[in-house]
């Protein structure tokens, strides 16, 4: 999604109202219930969130000089820098070492990369379309964020084709977007 993303794709930026900010926080929590103890650090109560609207109906939410999360249609997705700070608050999957190279150039994650020896899927099953953070074998930080295109049970049983649609990865346009 952010493979080609530069400053030119930014259309407008505006401060959001505090009521909208509260709504945003509760929506974000709804999606990631585990985030609850950390939410006031992710988006401090007194902070001013800036909404940056971009090409292709992507909106970024910008808090204290960092993009904290972005929205694509109805999904709220944390940015990688946020994930690095609060790694335990988001569902995790792990890919094997062979997949790192491809993921970091923006490829979708294929099922075999999620089921092989070096990879890990969470024990509880995640439904289709949930947003997951992608880790790699032997690494401690997340390298990408994606959306499941099939439930984790299906990934295990079908084991073919695209398992995760990649949204945001290390080194993409959003990662490099520093202002």
């Amino acid at each position: 999604m952010f493979k080609k993303f530069t400053k030119e794709d930014i259309h407008s930026r505006s401060n959001i109202k505090s009521s909208v900010q509260r709504g945003l926080k509760s929506k974000f929590l709804e999606q990631f219930p585990k985030l609850e103890p950390a939410i006031d650090n992710v988006i401090p109560k007194k902070s001013q969130v800036i909404l940056i609207k971009c090409e292709d109906k992507i909106s970024l939410y910008y808090v204290e000089n960092e993009v904290v999360l972005f929205q694509h249609f109805d999904d709220l997705v944390p940015s990688l820098r946020t994930v690095h700070k609060y790694p335990d608050c988001f569902p995790k999957v792990q890919v094997d070492r062979g997949a790192i190279k491809f993921v970091m150039s923006g490829a979708n994650v294929m099922c075999p990369g999620l089921t092989s020896a070096g990879a890990k899927l969470p024990e509880e099953s995640l439904p289709k379309d949930s947003v997951v953070t992608i880790y790699a074998e032997g690494k401690e930080n997340a390298l990408a964020i994606g959306k499941l295109t099939m439930s984790t049970d299906d990934i295990k049983s079908i084991n073919k084709g695209i398992g995760i649609e990649l949204l945001h990865y290390l080194g993409d346009g959003l990662w490099k977007l520093v202002e």
């Binding site: 006031d40 650090n41 990662w175």
Partner: peptide, 14 residues
Amino acid sequence: EVVAREIIYCDICS
């Protein structure tokens, strides 16, 4: 409360 983890980022490639 969960506090942010300190992450070191590479200066060269970020």
